[in-house]
Amino acid sequence: MTEPPLADEPRNLLGGRLLPCSYAPLTGYFRDGCCKTDGNDQGRHLVCARMTIEFLRFSLERGNDLVTPRAEYLFPGLKPGDWWCLCALRWSEALEAGLAPPVKLAATHAAVTRYVSRAALLRHAVDPPETV
């Protein structure tokens, strides 16, 4: 079995074409709305997650401020309800703390299973496999 591609023909966690995560705010390592990645993305922004206040606080406590706007990066700052491509390991860390945000499977890159268990992602899915 081959591993899912990282940059060419991205696939989602369900095996289909990777769907967009969010255009407003514009997310993704490439700021194209999708949770795509390549070898330069050290954070592996693979998980399409809906922000919760608990997760945003957790991230801030870990030194990653996702709330404050940063005009120089065209970053509007996130609020609860926003969809965002998260780093796989940050999502995993939040999972261990009991604060993992909900996940959109169809917009989460298949390569995420290199870092996070598929079962954990399925438990946090807003689009269960049988409805996608």
Rank of each mutant, 00 (worst) to 15 (best):
T108Q: 00
E96L: 12
E72F: 15
A94I: 08
T68H: 00
L89D: 05
A88M: 06
R114A: 14
T108V: 02
L105P: 01
W83R: 03
P101R: 01
E72W: 13
L66Y: 05
L95C: 13
P80C: 06
E93M: 14
F75M: 03
K104S: 07
A94N: 12
T108H: 04
V116H: 10
A107N: 08
D65T: 07
V103W: 00
Y73E: 11
L99I: 09
P80A: 11
P69R: 04
P76N: 10
T68C: 03
P69C: 15
T108L: 00
F75I: 03
W83V: 05
E93V: 12
A100W: 10
K104F: 09
R90I: 02
V116T: 15
F75L: 05
L99Q: 03
S117T: 14
P102S: 07
A110I: 05
W83A: 07
W84E: 04
C87V: 04
L66E: 03
W83L: 09
A120P: 06
N64C: 09
Y115H: 09
F75H: 06
E93K: 15
E72M: 07
A107T: 12
A106K: 10
L78K: 00
V103F: 06
Y115I: 07
P102A: 13
A111W: 03
L89G: 13
T113Q: 12
L86P: 08
